[in-house]
């Protein structure tokens, strides 16, 4: 693939006090591509997502290896501060927790849109995140929304930020199937419009028809990369079979 590499992890190693969380993670996200980073819970996916933004959830910690954004290495906090939001945004795993608890949802989205320099009306972004009647949602506080609604509101805020790459960390967990599909279609559209999407998930059933490439993480290492689930072997195949069994062979 010749498209521009928007985000890249090169031999990423993440250490927390007393243990290594990620040993070696290497992958990239190109313009126009939706890459799925899959793996069991605890395989290091979310912590890798945070490290790609220079945001570790613990202190002290250490990140070795390299993060490249738009072909430029991010080595210092200033480098990460330059690309955060402007080039790479994150939809956190906990949608409700990802919204300011004392701000109405519309206000959080407006702030993201203001930073992006686009129309601050939150309603189109809520619609894009799958709300058919976004008006009432915009005036709610996060605690007034269900888990799935809050998750979509967090997605709307990330969409409003208009970053080149969106890292979606388990953003479809807690959503019903039809809404999952709406959200994935929106992420797919983001990629089709020339952006990059890194979709972190442990639910492989979501991927067919949406992901361009699947990167498998296992015990803190990226161990496989394939264009389709069927092409996975080794740890990826184990993951596929386990998911197939849980789903009762229905996919």
């Amino acid at each position: 693939m010749s498209a521009e590499l928007l985000l890249e992890a090169r031999s990423l190693r993440i250490e927390a006090p007393g243990r290594t969380l990620v040993h070696d993670a290497s992958f990239g996200v190109r313009a126009g591509e939706l890459v799925a980073l899959v793996g069991h819970s605890g395989s290091g996916k979310s912590v890798t997502a945070r490290a790609l933004l220079g945001l570790l959830p613990f202190f002290p910690g250490r990140v070795a290896g390299e993060v490249w954004v738009d072909g430029q290495p991010c080595k210092t906090e200033a480098d990460f501060a330059r690309v955060r939001g402007a080039r790479v945004a994150l939809v956190p795993q906990d949608g409700r927790g990802g919204l300011d608890p004392l701000w109405r949802v519309g206000r959080t989205i407006r702030e993201a849109a203001r930073l992006a320099g686009v129309d601050e009306d939150p309603l189109p972004w809520l619609e894009a995140a799958g709300f058919s009647t976004p008006g009432p949602v915009a005036t709610c506080f996060p605690h007034e929304l269900s888990g799935g609604m809050a998750q979509r509101a967090a997605i709307a805020a990330a969409l409003a930020r208009k970053s080149a790459v969106l890292i979606a960390d388990e953003c479809t967990s807690g959503l019903d199937v039809s809404v999952q599909r709406t959200v994935l279609q929106r992420l797919r559209k983001l990629a089709d419009d020339g952006g990059g999407v890194l979709l972190i998930t442990h639910d492989l059933r979501l991927l067919p028809g949406f992901a361009d490439r699947i990167v498998v993480m296992d015990e803190g290492r990226t161990v496989e990369e394939a264009p389709r689930l069927e092409a996975l072997v080794g740890a990826g195949r184990v993951l596929v079979e386990a998911t197939r069994q849980i789903a009762g062979g229905r996919w």
């Binding site: 933004l53 945001l55 955060r84 939001g85 945004a89 994150l90 990802g98 930073l115 967090a154």
Partner: peptide, 15 residues
């Protein structure tokens, strides 16, 4: 300070 919305705000590029 370590709440998820602070991480999200930082990820959005808020100083």
């Amino acid at each position: 300070i370590r709440a998820e919305f602070v991480v999200a705000a930082r990820a959005h590029g808020i100083s």
